[in-house]
Design a protein around this nucleic acid. Structure first.
Lengths: 235, 235
DNA sequence: TCAAAAGTGTTCTGTATACACCCATGG
DNA sequence: CCATGGGTGTATACAGAACACTTTTGA
């Protein structure tokens, strides 16, 4: 069947920005390509959308291949479509934004794809327009983490408030007042005290919380502001 | 040249959500199709991306065809890629979000495309997944108009504060306090008093303002909140 | 017993809100 | 001169920021 005879058919790529947090730094999962084209260079994890597959399913498939994870946080970010973006052939690329709990990923799969976790500062040059894609994703992370409770997606099931604070300090690269942060966060009612304490600490053990899944859902689309007002720059 | 022999090539459509404001209601520019496929039904304005054209340029081209306008506010919104979204042939559609000053558009071009301005409430059923696209765009408008100064894009060059207020009341479907709105707005420093007054009023004439283009640019990416807190629902 | 990190409380200040009042215009 | 809509002023409440103090832990 061909209802649109005069239009051009082109490749639809899917590229994935994958963020993780190791307790100290925000990291990106990048690939040192051991395949053509651009073998030997760094790129995002990607692939092509199959003809019989939903776009979003394609992203899940590609993310699963690399990380071994299925139920992770994925958002469609933006579609890149400069005519000359891929020198090999005309291609548009739909970019997806994923947040994963870094300890959960399948390190065998990552190794077999020749991928590595790299801090934002240390990231190498990337092929094509992948550099712009990453910039866009970092922007998106900064913007959205201040308005929606997505930070949790980067932490383990059970986490402490100080851990969460370190995460936000890493995202925004600013110090945050411990006491105000904690109060603001608890006042959202999103956290459930598990009764357990964190054993990884050499000093006073912090309370482990988990997300209140119900409240999380209802609150997700509301605007949020638990970042200091200084982040909502008005000047 | 064909570096990716095994992947599928498919159609890339561009669909445009075009918002306008007539001083009272937010309206959508929709097309009653006098061409195949789905002739006789309502849809968004769209077309296909050309093989040698940047994606964003395709959107500008399509918007220009319908409205006769070139320098308008356009954002890429989302790419729709369900495998069965277009029954005719596998197609992904990149949706663009446009805000125009309704008085500026070329009504001849609109007429020749069989298009009409329709209020959100009165909109008809649309073909394919265009309904979802519109819902998504309305969400986007509500979300972003509270955080960024995009409302101005729907008003004439010179506008009054009461006009702007009516716009926001239409977007959010809530009454806003006249006095607080005005103060909040002026405090942003985005408005320049033109010295002129609005003559269309039967009573006291309101001051005509224009945007401070410089400040607009710098402020655009900052979070903003001149909507009442009630909009930033936390419950 | 001391240092380091976690947790709780208090004060202060800026800003959003609610609401009262004055001004301009045309009928 | 009065109804309608535009513009300015002010008191109050609330939430964020700053900062002091207490508690827990392991070394």
């Amino acid at each position: 069947m061909n209802n649109y005879p005069q239009a051009s058919r082109i490749l639809v790529a899917i590229d994935c920005i994958i963020f993780g947090f190791d307790g100290k730094d925000i990291k990106l999962l990048l690939i040192k390509r051991n395949f053509e084209p651009e073998k030997g260079k760094w790129s995002l994890m990607g692939g092509f959308m199959n003809a019989d597959e939903d776009l979003a399913d394609g992203a899940v498939r590609i993310l699963y291949n690399l990380t071994g994870l299925k139920d992770i946080y994925v958002e469609q970010l933006e579609t890149f479509g400069k005519a000359d973006r891929d020198p090999g052939e005309r291609t548009v690329s739909v970019v997806f934004f994923a947040l994963i709990k870094i300890d959960d990923h399948d390190s065998e799969a990552v190794k077999s794809h020749n991928a590595s976790w790299i801090t934002l500062d240390a990231r190498p040059k990337l092929i094509f327009d992948h550099e712009q894609m990453v910039s866009r994703a970092i922007e998106h992370l900064k913007y959205n983490a201040a308005l929606h409770p997505i930070g949790f997606e980067l932490l383990p099931e059970r986490f402490t408030i100080p851990q969460l604070q370190k995460l936000y300090e890493a995202i925004y690269n600013i110090p945050i007042d411990r006491r105000n942060f904690s109060r603001k966060l608890l006042s959202t009612g999103l956290l459930i005290d598990t009764g357990q304490k964190n054993n990884n600490s050499a000093t006073k053990k912090a309370t482990l919380y988990k997300l209140d899944a119900e409240r999380y859902k209802t609150k997700f689309h509301s605007f949020w502001n638990f970042m200091p007002d200084s982040m909502r720059v008005n000047e």
